[in-house]
Write a protein that binds this DNA or RNA. Structure first.
Lengths: 348, 348
DNA sequence: CTGAAAGCGCTAACAC
DNA sequence: GTGTTAGCGCTTTCAG
């Protein structure tokens, strides 16, 4: 008696002496006579029966899988998002497919298009760039998509965005209020949506304070500790009067802090440093880094909830309105931008 | 004409005026007359046909999905593994399911058991603890599993392990050779396999050097920067003569370095610090942290290759031997453990 | 409450 | 080469 392969509804049905329909009903908790339930459950337990999820998906048209795609899972901001997404979706029985696209725009488009193969029920996407091709692909997607990031007006996709303009403003205002005047900016790749927005925020906040942004005070580079250090050196070489530097993420800020310290500068005495994302790295430096929390965790949570909501609303109402939420930034002030002498974390 | 739902083989077949079998053949590149190929491809393109992966899986018995499960995707060591696993499997057409179990042993067991639902073709698992229950579950699993971590002798599961004993020895020898004598150890949770091994390695290396390990020189704590700092303070409070501290990961080491600096100690002059994993955090401190690279990336790569190999060998040869590889550790010496005055990164 | 049967979309024999 | 047909394992009418 070759029990060829794992047990199926049929195996169980035979053993329990009922029909496969009854097995299915019992497995799904759809009413059945107590006796039937008992026999099926016993047979299932004895044989270690587990329903085949693929067959279920084929029948039901839903896989209970969600895809989360972003540039780089090494980035703490995305880790926070992943955690929250998992926290929302797993209890609901969803599995999570992760795609770290390595900032490859083609790969990103591929992810959107791959929704068509019905492998996952929905997609949470953090795009680096949003081209018309992206928008078209998203509009035509067979499954709901939630974008974490900014979309052009009129886009017909749900999204949750950070407010990096306000975030930058928060940091700049803080620096200006504590008396800094020559505030440099180290940005990440500028040809991305967040990159553009952070630059906008930086310049706007300066203008609002009556200061004209100078080109020489902005550096653009890849994300990374070393890149941040190099950028800071360039900035300080060109203009030793710089008294503070705002960075587009914590890696850059940490690098900048190192560079400054290697030049013998005191932080925050000679140079204030502020990062973005408020990741673990902000607590990995001395002095501790001030940082603007753009709410990665919260954005992840909201995106997950939005997507799940779409998935539950059985027949997607054709004209149902596009949803868009914005998460407010939060400035966390630590030693790296304190007024001189306070909490610098470095013994004088 | 309600084109109810996305196109299927049938839709394409009708439009192309061929049978569904021909559509399937063309889609899978199985020979067909050039004319047939053209017509099918045209129809498919016009309708934006994408084969339903779920139906394929049901037929083929394979989902082309792999699950990777570990404690915490926030840990840089696991990020490296994930990257390498993805690099190996994606080009082969596999999707990656990620499970961050949060060190919940029950969740971990659940992952192993969930293989039974045929959702993924195989599992790469980094267990925290390996109980008999785990071993049984793994032995009975319907799908191949590769464990990244140490398994008890006689386990019938493929695995790739780090050599944390040698890794610890590497660090200790280096410290001893550079003249350190009172070497403390800050360990992570000791009731885990890696925790136990690292302690073993620490004690063995000391004994090999003719030093008797003292209980008071070892601290056990959770992983985390703050936890590392607290442990270092306890250690130094109890024994100010400690001249070096070896830590079970970079977070702990970073915390320990901060604690020492906050006490006014010079690193490496007064205290040498060595971490483990050689993660980005090692480059996030001043001085740069020495660290023992346990080969996370390589372990990930090897595990992925092992699993893929199992998946390709069509009928799993019943008696095929269990595979087990061990990755050699590598000590990366940086400023935090240099001989005094060399490369400390802090201006004297 | 239960069983028989249809069918989700696809691939792979098997005949022609 | 190509079409016909039989399932993969499950859920869900539809009768009884």
């Amino acid at each position: 008696m070759a029990s060829s392969g794992p047990p199926t509804v049929e195996t169980i049905a035979q053993r329990a002496g009922v029909s496969i329909a009854s097995v299915s009903r019992v497995m799904n908790g759809h009413g059945a006579r107590p006796d039937t339930v008992r026999r099926v459950e016993r047979a299932a337990a004895e044989l270690g029966y587990v329903p085949n999820a693929v067959a279920r998906s084929l029948k039901g048209g839903r896989t209970r899988q969600i895809t989360f795609a972003m540039q780089d899972i090494g980035n703490p901001a995305y880790v926070s998002m992943f955690r929250e997404i998992q926290a929302v979706t797993r209890p609901l029985g969803y599995r999570l497919l992760l795609h770290s696209t390595d900032a490859d725009a083609a790969a990103e488009l591929g992810v959107v298009r791959s929704l068509a193969d019905r492998t996952s029920d929905g997609l949470i996407l953090c795009p680096i760039r949003v081209t018309d091709e992206h928008l078209t692909a998203m509009r035509e997607a067979v499954r709901p998509i939630v974008v974490i990031g900014s979309l052009p007006e009129g886009a017909t996709v749900d999204s949750v965005r950070a407010d990096s303009v306000s975030g930058a403003a928060l940091a700049l205002r803080h620096l200006l209020e504590s008396g800094r005047r020559r505030i440099a900016f180290i940005n990440g790749p500028a040809d991305t949506v967040p990159g553009r927005n952070r630059l906008l925020g930086y310049e706007k906040a300066l203008r609002d304070a009556g200061v004209t942004p100078e080109r020489g005070l902005t550096e653009t580079t890849e994300f990374g500790i070393e890149a941040g250090a190099a950028a800071a050196h360039r900035l300080l070489d060109a203009d030793p009067a710089i008294d503070s530097v705002f960075c587009a993420n914590d890696q850059l800020a940490l690098g900048a802090a190192h560079a400054a310290q290697d030049r013998g500068l005191d932080i925050p005495g000679d140079l204030a440093v502020i990062g973005m994302d408020d990741s673990e790295l902000a607590r990995a430096s001395r002095p501790l880094l001030s940082s603007v929390d753009l709410g990665s965790a919260e954005r992840g949570r909201i995106a997950a909830r939005m997507l799940v909501a779409r998935l539950e609303e059985s027949p997607p109402p054709p004209g149902s309105p596009v949803r868009c939420e914005t998460v407010a930034p939060r400035l966390v002030v630590r030693g790296s931008s304190s007024p001189l002498g306070v909490g610098s974390g470095i013994p004088a």
